[in-house]
Design a protein around this nucleic acid. Structure first.
Lengths: 107, 107
DNA sequence: TTGTTATATTGCAATATTACGATAATAAAT
DNA sequence: ATTTATTATCGTAATATTGCAATATAACAA
């Protein structure tokens, strides 16, 4: 069918899956790593850096923004993106919690 | 196009994305949590526990096995699945490393 | 053997994702 | 006002994912 049956799972399970889905693309991983490497905020030389077309990058940035992983600040005709550290820490905790809880009680 | 341009990214970026993709489904999250909740290994009442059809669960188990997250041991006509703790720890380290490195150097 | 139970595989329909050309929107520069 | 540069959105083609019915496979039981 191609349609995930979200309603049969818990909110936590769906949230985790959504977070993982947002990170489940090498391009988005690369974007996050590139943004975090810069000292301050960094504008869209991302397109130059990564070998994807501008609309594609824009779409990936939108998804990362939607999950709250990054924030974009308009500065003239450019947009400066940076990691949303508060949200990042939150997501880090959610993922770690899942990984730790799942490992324990195992055979 | 629908085809991820894996070749333009590093091996690490692709590996991470693959790991995240494997975890990017609430059903697979639920399966992992269910398996880990049991004391020993657990056989396929997973289908009963989670509200998906048997072929669907089988397919998800296959993906989890393929990524090395779980292992299946045949015991008669049943198969007992359990978390591959060594691999789990490895993946945990990869994810944590990514999350920690990306957070630093941020604006 | 025949039947039963447990799991895997196949095939297919429906939806989701990825990618990008074309185009729009916005802001600075001339 | 016109041009130029930067980013976002729309539309669309191609591939991927999800889910399940039908079927296959394998092991035990009667």
């Amino acid at each position: 069918m191609g349609l995930t049956k979200s309603h049969i799972f818990t909110e936590d399970q769906n949230t985790l899956a959504d977070i993982f889905r947002t990170l489940a693309h090498p391009g988005r991983i690369a974007i996050l790593q590139h943004i975090s490497k810069q000292q301050g905020c960094i504008c869209n030389d991302i397109v130059e850096e990564i070998g994807l077309a501008q609309p594609t990058i824009s779409q990936h940035l939108k998804e990362l923004k939607h999950m709250g992983l990054i924030e974009g600040e308009i500065s003239g005709k450019k947009v400066c993106y940076c990691i949303n550290t508060a949200r990042w820490t939150e997501i880090q905790a959610l993922i770690n919690n899942f990984l730790l809880r799942t490992e324990s009680n195992c055979c």
